[in-house]
């Protein structure tokens, strides 16, 4: 599809959507959002390239082979669950570390967030496989 509007808007909107998807991913811990919806939005951002230009451009923008995203996302989620096994707690028990940041207070990072990042990658990867393959046909 060659639409001037799409072609002009995509380079502007796509980075914004990826940025917003990461915001959703991080916000998801205590508020609506999370890895799944973040991954969907990120996939939409790359799908826009496929619609406005073509599949090659979308692949180029994604830069990573989609199955790689799926595999590493799964492993990341699995690893986040296994952290608690090292301390003798059951699988998937949440673990937290506090990192003090000068002037701003402190940042809490936990395994549930790592799990969510894994979900984000899996969703993005699976959707890219589906969308790009369908668009190629």
């Amino acid at each position: 599809m060659t639409s001037l509007i799409m072609r002009t808007a995509t380079p502007l909107l796509s980075p914004l959507m990826v940025f917003f998807s990461i915001f959703l991913l991080l916000r998801g811990h205590n508020n609506p959002g999370g890895g799944f919806v973040g991954g969907l939005l990120a996939a939409a951002a790359f799908a826009m390239w496929a619609i406005a230009y073509n599949v090659q451009v979308a692949r180029h923008r994604l830069a990573v082979d989609p199955p790689l995203l799926v595999g590493s996302g799964l492993l990341l989620a699995l690893a986040s669950g296994s952290v608690s096994l090292l301390t003798g707690k059951p699988f998937l028990t949440g673990k937290w570390v506090e990192i003090p940041i000068p002037l701003l207070g402190h940042l809490e990072i936990g395994t549930p967030m790592v799990f969510d990042v894994g979900v984000y990658l899996v969703v993005l990867g699976v959707l890219m496989i589906i969308i790009l393959n369908l668009a190629e046909e």
């Binding site: 082979d65 199955p67 790689l68 799926v70 595999g71 590493s72 799964l74 492993l75 699995l78």
Partner: peptide
Amino acid sequence: PLGTSAILILTW
């Protein structure tokens, strides 16, 4: 099986 499958996807 989950871990195996994840590694297998990486070696697609």
